[in-house]
Write a protein that binds this DNA or RNA. Structure first.
Lengths: 243, 243
DNA sequence: CGCTGCCTTGACACGCCTCAACGAGCGTGG
DNA sequence: CCACGCTCGTTGAGGCGTGTCAAGGCAGCG
């Protein structure tokens, strides 16, 4: 199977064969991790950067009172902790939602990629800026959308992101997040997530059973929550604009 | 006075004289903008990147129902829209909170900086990753913290960020955000912001009048909201006046 | 089979929102 | 110099969305 990082980045940058070879090489060293285990913890200053090759992971912050905020979901092709290469210290933790395979990349290798491989540097810029855009969208999920809309929005986002790495079919995918996790994504209670999910089910917008989410009418769900995929920047770039 | 971008980036990267000269040159072309005006709008595909040299701006998204989510506050030295250099299209808008002076940088110049000036590339990586960390913190502000804690957290963050560019003294600064804006930062109502501010005042945690915020006991406010400045990755900066 | 996560349900409390009106500060023009 | 109009802040009353607490159900798994 093809490397999900290359697959993802090639959506926006035309790599040379050499670029591809470099990236393949960089992902050579892998490490499995069990569901529920932490990949890296807040405050760590590791010497390696991790990349998800397979499985689903998530970033989270833990509060004084024990509360937890999930701040990102990571699918194959996503970097876990590019920050540590440049910032040094993790300001949050990362855990595995499902069993994962990670690529383990020395910090120096990342710095070398950014300095000596312009197309790879640019592709990594792109990936980071998309992550930032996703965070902005999540902020509006919590801040502006109703509970049901926020859930629907997350479901739409995951559909597209999983599709883009071949981990979802046209309208369904295995849901990596439990109700408890969804609650911590949206800053609400699992009890309320449960009731909101029931409302979405009764409206015929989703089918969620046995940890598999099916969206009977994707366009209807998108319409319901005002989902605009622009922030994911999934499609290849278009010609230059005028300004 | 020195260029706020250089000042900010030098906190983490040792520039050469040539790097500094390049950055000075890049900021040569400036543009004023009045308070309340938009700098750039969702969907724009401009050919220039903007940087705040003076004043305070903010990123925001507008919802179908007219709601607004503020997703970032920009102080001198912050890029407005580095994204457009790499992503092409704006997925949110940026407006000026106070009168601002912006540097206007051609898109190609940014791409050139990332490809040919490794220290500048790295410094811009750092700045972008800090922005991302700030977004994660804002997500927990809305998702996990009580209204009063969230407000206090924003106040602490702004204090440090404004201090780092010399726009705040030891415990006070001109508050660029109205109650209405604070509401859209935290996903609540301006009415509730008002009541929560009163609670913070009555607790003696803040003094906010005539658009100036004073924090009588900074450590106490930090303790109140569990503020940990690690996510800003600021290099400790000694106040010039103090030995 | 009997755990043990995870989901589901009910009753009740409270934070925050909505609607609505009023007040304070301030630039502008007569 | 005052009247005006605008923005922003303040206050009250009532309702709804979510949180809390607590118990029970169900399915996967050793």
């Amino acid at each position: 199977m093809s490397n999900p990082l290359i697959r993802k980045l090639e959506a926006v940058v035309d790599f040379t064969d050499r670029d591809r070879a470099v990236l393949e090489q960089v992902c050579k060293s892998t490490q499995p991790i069990a569901a529920g285990r932490d990949i890296i913890r807040q405050g760590d200053r590791p010497n390696n950067v991790h990349l998800v090759l397979d499985g689903v992971a998530f970033r989270y912050k833990v509060m004084r009172n024990g509360g937890r905020q999930i701040v990102a979901v990571l699918v194959p092709g996503d970097f876990c902790d590019l920050h540590v290469a440049i910032l040094g210290e993790m300001d949050h933790s990362i855990g595995a939602l499902t069993p994962c395979t990670l690529a383990v990349i020395p910090r120096e290798t990342i710095l070398d990629l950014t300095e000596r491989h312009p197309r790879i540097n640019r592709a990594m810029w792109w990936a980071t800026l998309v992550d930032e855009g996703t965070l902005r969208e999540w902020l509006t999920n919590i801040g502006q959308r109703e509970a049901a809309e926020g859930l629907a929005h997350i479901f739409c986002e995951l559909l597209l992101r999983l599709q883009s790495v071949g981990a979802a079919d046209a309208n369904s995918y295995p849901m990596p997040l439990r109700q408890n996790d969804l609650a911590d994504v949206l800053g609400m209670t699992s009890v309320h997530v449960n009731r909101t999910l029931q409302a979405l089910r009764e409206a015929g917008l989703i089918v969620l059973e046995r940890r598999r989410l099916t969206i009977p009418d994707v366009d209807r769900l998108k319409e319901f929550c005002g989902f605009d995929p622009a922030y994911l920047h999934l499609r290849p770039r278009q010609p230059e604009a005028v300004g």
